[in-house]
């Protein structure tokens, strides 16, 4: 009955393996694709609106006498966020014709509290090499650890800024974890994901940018 002991040891090993989280933070993102004057994609600017709970967490202790927290007050947190984001590829995963696109450190970033008390993180992520999108520039925004659930903004998910004539974008994939939609979320949804699926990635919409 040694096998039983081994089984027990495996059971314990399984217990100690870090394996679980579910979204605690909800972000509604808007991703602008910025072109340079040669018609190449130069940067992606993200504006991430956090849910009311994380916003309350981020602004605690800030904002005097019921005022909104100022950009200056939020600057240290913005710095921490962006520095840690570097270790996670800024949760922004872009591909050009199937090859990973590298980003440099953000050229600017800020965190602010909107009048509706939601906190927005805005940052501009330059491509290491500005690139002509051609027909196959795509990107996704998601947290691989799935602590944060991202969804693209319903109304304006993406805007192409300074794009040459004829460029367009499309967004593929529903936003199953949009906060309203998630109320209908059931275990069936998760159970139906194929084995080995990576939640964050699986649930992320994909943005396609194409230029003539």
């Amino acid at each position: 009955m040694r096998t039983f002991g081994f089984g027990l040891a495996l059971f314990l090993a399984g217990l100690s393996a870090p394996a679980f989280a579910h979204p605690h933070v909800w972000v509604t993102a808007r991703e602008d694709v910025i072109f340079d004057n040669q018609g190449r994609i130069a940067a992606i600017r993200g504006a991430w609106v956090f849910d009311d709970m994380y916003s309350a967490f981020a602004t605690q202790g800030l904002g005097k006498d019921g005022q909104l927290a100022t950009k200056e007050e939020l600057a240290p947190l913005a710095k921490t966020n962006v520095q840690s984001l570097a270790e996670f590829d800024y949760f922004t995963f872009a591909k050009l014709a199937g090859t990973k696109v590298e980003f440099g450190p953000p050229t600017d970033y800020s965190l602010e509290e909107r009048p509706d008390k939601l906190v927005v993180l805005t940052f501009t992520l330059p491509l290491k090499q500005p690139t002509n999108p051609g027909k196959a520039f795509t990107f996704q925004v998601y947290d691989p650890t799935y602590f944060v659930a991202f969804s693209l903004d319903d109304k304006v998910p993406v805007e192409l800024i300074g794009a040459p004539k004829g460029c367009s974008f499309s967004v593929l994939g529903a936003d199953p974890l949009d906060e309203e939609a998630t109320k209908k979320l059931s275990e069936a949804f998760f159970a139906n994901l194929s084995p080995g699926s990576d939640f964050g990635e699986k649930l992320a919409s994909r943005v396609f940018v194409a230029c003539p």
């Binding site: 870090p18 394996a19 679980f20 989280a21 579910h22 605690h24 691989p144 650890t145 799935y146 602590f147 159970a191 994901l193 194929s194 084995p195 080995g196 699926s197 990576d198 939640f199």
Partner: peptide, 10 residues
């Protein structure tokens, strides 16, 4: 930090 979920099923 919360543990990441990575790849799961079942």
């Amino acid at each position: 930090d919360e543990a990441p979920i990575g790849r799961v099923s079942g």
